[in-house]
Every structure is written in C-alpha cells, then in structure tokens.
C-alpha cells in the first residue's frame, strides 16, 4: 500500500471517519472510563501548574536572596561609622548598592508601619546593619567585602543568605520530585485503567476478534483497531481534563486576586506561558492511552490462538 494512503487511512481511523470500526466502542463502558481519565488528566495538569508556580516562586526568592547581602557591623557602631562602612562596601566591584540602617532610617521605617517604639531605639542596643545589593553573578564577593571592611578598621559579619537560598532550593527540589511522582503516578493510573478497559473491550468483542483472526488478521492489526479507539478516547478525555484544570486555575486565580496583597498574590506565579501544560496534556494522555491499550491488547491477543 502507498505509504501516503496508509498514513491517510491511519488519520481517518484516528478521527473515526471513513470505514466503520471493526471493533466498535461500547459506550456504556467508555463513558465512565472517559470521566476517570479526564479527572486524572485534570489532576495531572494541576500538579504540573502548581509545580511550575512552586519553581517560579523558588526562582524568584533565590534570585532576590542572591542579589542581596546583609552586613552586621559590630565595631565601631555609630551612625557615622555605619555610613562610612557603607561607603567602603560600595567601592567593592560587584556591589550595586549599600544602604546603612541608621537609627533615623529604622525610626522612619517603624513609623511607616504605624509603630510607636521609634523613640526607644536610641536606648536599645539594636544590631547595626547595612543592606547590600550585589550582582548575583559576581564571585567571592562576600570575602572581598569582609576583607575591605577589615582593612578599613571594622569588625563586621557578612551574611550572603546562602543558608536560606539553599533551603529554598532544597524545598523546591522536593516539590519538583513530588510533582514528578504525582504526574508519573497519575499517568500510570490512567494507563492501568486504559489497559484494564482494553482487555475488557477485547473480551466483550471476543467473537469479532475471533472472526478477524479467522479471516487472517495479524495481532498487530487487531491491536491497532483497539489502540485507535483508546487513542481517541485518551485525546478527548485529555482535552476535557485540561479544560477543567484551566477553568479551575482561572477561577482560583480570580478568587486569589480579589483584594489580594503582595503576600497572597499567587496569581503572578502562574503565567500565560504555562498554557503549554494544558495544551500538551491531551497529547500526552492520548499517547499514554494508546501505549497502554497497545500493550494490553497484544498481551490479551497472545492468549488466543
């Protein structure tokens, strides 16, 4: 047969047009299976989207942390010393800014959030901090800042926040693992459901399968008939699942955005570019369904003469 005609025949078979299916679907069996696969697909999409949001949040946080350092000046520790130390730090290549937390600035900050303990600051032994902005690509900056401060006569501790960014990276790695395990588990569960249904379909249509065998059908031909049906079922279920997941995300974001503050505005963590997850879901579901149906059908057919 002409390869082009063969391809066209396969496409027509996938779309369910042209020749009547030799092993038709049992609608009573197909409907619950479609619902199950669609739910699994929706859960898979949500897991993927949430994982993406988690990675994006982790990236944002680690990027923020890597772009900043905190210097604790121990001696000398007047406001003028703090301003001088900031000047020393600014001179280090790779430093983008250095803002000393003078008593006045601390008072201003406290007042800006409505606190009335500002006047007490003069009597408290508060830590003398400098917020340092750095180029995250610059290497060895922590050591160079410490060295320059020591040369200028300061006793100071430089914190590059590596402890926190490490924790965030570990946490996001664990999230990534959970999301992958969830996706694999959902795909496996969908595949197992499809395999079970493919076996049941062959049992239900056993007489038709026998006829196909007796007129000379290869196992691969019969398996392809079963596979085409479940490929279609997987694709339609995947579309439905992705649509449900999309609606849930849009609805969830709308609820989160209503009166949200910067703390709760999770919406920014899910972006339009993540739509590829929803677009890919029907294809992956269809492929997993087709593979599971093919393997199950071949195994079942091998048990027949």
């Amino acid at each position: 047969m002409n390869p082009l005609l063969d391809l066209l025949a396969r496409i027509k078979r996938f779309l369910g047009i042209g020749e009547t299916a030799l092993l038709p679907a049992d609608r009573r069996q197909a409907r619950p299976l479609m619902i199950v696969v669609a739910i699994m697909c929706a859960l898979g999409c949500l897991a993927g989207l949430i994982a993406r949001a988690g990675f994006r949040a982790a990236d944002t946080w680690t990027s923020d942390l890597r772009s900043a350092m905190t210097v604790l000046v121990e001696e000398p520790r007047t406001d003028q010393d703090l301003i001088r130390a900031a000047t020393v730090i600014r001179a280090v290549p790779g430093v983008t800014q250095a803002e000393p937390m003078t008593r006045q600035r601390a008072k201003d900050l406290l007042e800006s959030v409505g606190s009335d303990i500002g006047p007490l600051l003069d009597e408290l032994d508060v830590p003398r901090l400098i917020e340092v902005g750095v180029d995250p690509q610059a290497e060895g900056l922590k050591a160079r800042i410490a060295e320059q401060l020591e040369t200028a006569g300061f006793q100071a501790e430089v914190d590059d926040h590596s402890r926190y960014s490490g924790e965030i990276l570990r946490t996001s790695g664990v999230l990534r693992g959970f999301a992958l395990v969830a996706l694999v588990a959902l795909l496996g569960a969908a595949g197992a459901s499809i395999a079970f249904a493919a076996r049941a379909a062959l049992e239900t249509r056993r007489e038709a399968v026998e006829i196909l065998h007796l007129v000379g059908a290869q196992d691969a031909f019969v398996a392809a008939e079963v596979q085409a049906r479940f490929l279609r079922l997987g694709f339609v279920s995947g579309l439905a699942g992705a649509a449900v997941a999309g609606l849930l995300v849009v609805g969830g974001l709308a609820v989160m955005s209503a009166g949200a503050t910067g703390l709760t505005q999770g919406g920014v963590l899910i972006q339009w570019s993540d739509v590829w997850i929803l677009l890919l879901a029907p294809v992956v579901t269809a492929a997993a369904s087709a593979l599971a149906a093919w393997i199950a059908a071949r195994e079942t057919l091998r048990e027949l003469v």
Partner: peptide, 24 residues
C-alpha cells in the same frame, strides 16, 4: 454465519480485505 452485527453487509464482506491492509 458469525456476521459482525454492527457492520453492514458491505462492511462484513470488506473484512478480509481490510485485514490485508487494503484501502476502500
């Protein structure tokens, strides 16, 4: 007879050709 009940007379007769990979 063992005809496939969901297929028309034409489709039942086409089975031996279809399993050989022949097109309509």
């Amino acid at each position: 007879f063992r005809l496939l009940p969901h297929l028309t007379v034409f489709d039942n007769l086409s089975i031996p050709f279809r399993v050989r990979g022949m097109g309509y």
